[in-house]
Amino acid sequence: MALADGFDVDRAFCPDFHHAVELVGRRWTGVILRALLHGATRFTQIRDAIPELTDKMLSARLRELEAEGIVTRRVTDDVPVRVDYALTEKGRDLSAAITSLSDWADRWATTGDR
């Protein structure tokens, strides 16, 4: 239903868009994706790249991203066992969105504005 000013009420809410925003916008998820896009592959590399991120939260977010098909987890039977994370094609496809948001943050978002 279009209103007089051209706003389309029926298109204002899109369940797929809402799911995507909720997924990527979860606490720590965006910065985890950014770390993976910048080459981090090991749990400790990701954690060390993100101050204040706890192991428990990182584990939870990586499991969620894996369940969504955005991240893969590969275990190598070494001593000690090696676990690597990588973005899937679906995850790498978020690169433009993450980069655009990073650019916007560089221009407009400052930690002092909170």
Score class of each variant (00 low, 15 high):
Gln45Tyr: 15
Thr99Ser: 09
Phe17Glu: 03
Val71Ser: 15
Lys56Glu: 14
Ala67Asp: 03
Arg107Val: 12
Met1Trp: 06
Arg47Asp: 14
Thr44Glu: 07
Val31His: 06
Ala96His: 14
Arg114Pro: 06
Trp28Val: 08
Arg63Glu: 10
Cys14Trp: 03
Phe13Gln: 01
Ala4Leu: 12
Leu87Ser: 03
Glu66Pro: 13
Asp10Gly: 00
Ile98Ser: 14
Glu68Asp: 15
Trp104Arg: 10
Arg114Gly: 14
Pro80Asp: 14
Val21Ala: 03
Thr88Gly: 13
Ala49His: 09
Pro15Tyr: 02
Ser95Pro: 05
Ala2Val: 09
Phe43Gly: 01
Ile46Trp: 10
Thr29Tyr: 07
Asp16Phe: 07
Ile32Glu: 12
Glu68Gln: 11
Thr54Leu: 11
Ala96Cys: 15
Glu52Lys: 13
Thr54Cys: 02
Asp84Pro: 11
Arg74Glu: 13
Ala60Asn: 13
Arg61His: 10
Ala4Glu: 06
Ala12Phe: 00
Leu53Gly: 15
Trp28Cys: 12
Leu33Ile: 13
Thr72Ala: 13
Asp84Arg: 13
Ala20Asn: 05
Glu22Ser: 01
Trp28Glu: 04
Pro80Met: 09
Arg27Tyr: 05
Leu94Ser: 12
Asp5Glu: 11
Asp84Val: 15
Tyr85Gln: 08
Gly30Leu: 15
Gly112Thr: 10
Arg73Trp: 13
Leu87Lys: 08
Thr88Cys: 11
Asp103Arg: 11
Ala12Gly: 02
Thr111Tyr: 08
Thr44Lys: 04
Asp5Val: 05
Asp10Ala: 07
Thr72Trp: 05
Gly25Arg: 06
Leu62Trp: 14
Gly30Thr: 15
Ile70Met: 08
Phe43Ile: 14
Ala12Val: 00
Asp84Asn: 15
Phe43Trp: 06
Ile32Phe: 02
Phe17Cys: 02
Ala67Gly: 01
Ala97Pro: 12
Ile98Lys: 07
Val9Gln: 13
Glu68Tyr: 06
Asp8Arg: 00
Asp55His: 01
Gly91Glu: 10
Thr41Arg: 11
Ala49Tyr: 15
Ile50Arg: 03
Ser102Pro: 07
Gly30Pro: 12
Phe43Met: 01
Ile46Asp: 03
Glu52Tyr: 15
Thr41Pro: 08
Leu3Phe: 00
Ser102Asn: 07
Glu64His: 12
Glu22Cys: 03
Asp106Leu: 09
Gly69Cys: 13
Asp106Trp: 06
Glu68His: 05
Ala40Cys: 03
Gly39His: 08
Ala109Thr: 14
Arg11Pro: 00
Ala105Glu: 10
Leu23Lys: 02
Arg107Ile: 07
